[in-house]
Design a protein around this nucleic acid. Structure first.
Lengths: 260, 260
DNA sequence: GCCAGACTAG
DNA sequence: CTAGTCTGGC
């Protein structure tokens, strides 16, 4: 099974690139983040014409996630609330979570809040959001031990995941609190698929649009696949495809593909 | 002497097209309207690199005029107030007037208010503005009999200057009051350079972005060169260059060039 | 209806 | 730097 995660920074602006990529790169499920469009305006037909089944959760302007699947998914749920019914509904105002089962494996697709700057209101929201995420996954694990968790985490877990130009100390996406919050999540039983195959630095999935960061390879590895034990065992590869980042008018992120 | 007038609808958005046009079309002075940029952010160097001297009067978002000259201009003045010192300074809040002397000829570059719709507050402003303009030119004529007056007048003087699809009766840019106000201005001693050489209809300088107006040649001739008698006598040509309107992401106006 | 700039977010 | 929306002009 092949699963890709890609923050596309607007599914409508990037549609042609996404469709081209899908025709050249067979995957079972493509997990999109930052679709930036309400469900009514999501370009479903473009994906359906290719034989994919889209499952979407979007909003105006910001956030938005989608699962584009080769086969119909079962048990699709949107947001935290469907799994954590006692949760305040405000946690699902931002469309950041979608999930479904493909051939017995629960695919979870996330767009973790960016957090803006350390100590800000958005930073506190990010930390709280990650706590809810832990509860959400804990509950899902009770129902299914095989979870493939992916998305834009907006966190680089280790210093090696960040280009050396960055003053890491107290940088958003690299703070101790953020890393600990993410470690608390993966400690439920997940492992980073990319690091099964590659222990080297200078492997990034996101490059800031500013200051020609891509050309200078000043990136961050913040888009991840986390797998539960048996999936991790089965995993055959996890690669970052930097080609889409080279196109004109690219997303600032590039796809990461896991196969197990 | 060759003078061009061009409402560029943002000098920054159109910069490449303007520079290309200038390299392919030698003019002594290029008169720009709707530069839509404060003086600090005006792209002077692009013009200076081509050997031109820019004289500018701009504001944030709206209006803005500029003279781009092959030679340094003398006696440059901006707004009505420099010539009509008793005038309320509020008349120069909108940046619509710039003028300077090139080889003894005073070049006046205008962006006449559009007027929105007949009877509106903006319509009254347009009519009042044209009255001030008359005073302004009357004063300038005392100092120099040779004036080349051009710009976006937002008025079609005759029915022949308007495509036949338009219901002219009481249309903004074609009302009797607007036409009379402009006639009161040119009666100071100006004549329409374009009509010295061309009495035909279907010659337009502006086509609405909407409804594929350019493709169907549903335009208006609202960008003019008006010349005082001796310049009018000397005038050798006045042509509308529709080529820039054919480009991708064009201005809705196209240059009009007079030579005398 | 089509376009431009300001603003906000990343 | 690059999205989206909003506003305003024509």
């Amino acid at each position: 099974m092949k699963i890709a995660t890609w923050n596309v920074n607007s599914v409508r602006t990037r549609l042609e690139q996404i469709i081209n990529w899908l025709t050249e790169n067979y995957v079972d499920v493509l997990c999109l983040q930052e679709t930036k469009v309400i469900d009514h305006d999501f370009p479903r037909i473009a994906f359906e014409s290719l034989g994919y089944y889209p499952y979407i959760s979007g909003q105006k302007s910001y956030n938005g996630v989608a699962l584009i699947s080769r086969q119909p998914l079962t048990d699709v749920n949107i947001g935290f609330g469907s799994i954590l019914p006692d949760l305040a509904s405000s946690w699902d105002e931002q469309k950041r979570v979608i999930s479904g089962i493909f051939e017995g494996v629960r695919i979870v697709n996330l767009y973790v809040p960016n957090g803006s700057s350390i100590g800000s209101e958005k930073y506190e929201y990010k930390l709280s959001w990650l706590k809810i995420l832990r509860e959400y996954l804990q509950t899902l694990l009770l129902l299914n031990p095989d979870i493939s968790l992916c998305g834009d985490f907006n966190i680089a877990l280790e210093d090696i995941d960040i280009n050396s130009q960055v003053k890491i100390a107290n940088h958003i996406m690299a703070s101790e609190q953020e890393r600990q919050a993410l470690k608390d999540v993966i400690s439920l039983g997940f492992a980073d698929a990319f690091r099964k195959f590659n222990s080297a630095g200078e492997n990034y999935s996101w490059w800031d649009y500013r200051t020609a960061a891509f050309k200078r390879n000043l990136g961050w590895r913040i888009d991840h696949h986390y797998l539960t034990p048996s999936l991790y065992e089965r995993a055959q590869s996890c690669i970052i495809d930097i080609e889409p980042r080279k196109l004109v008018q690219p997303s600032d992120h590039t796809p990461v593909i896991v196969e197990f």
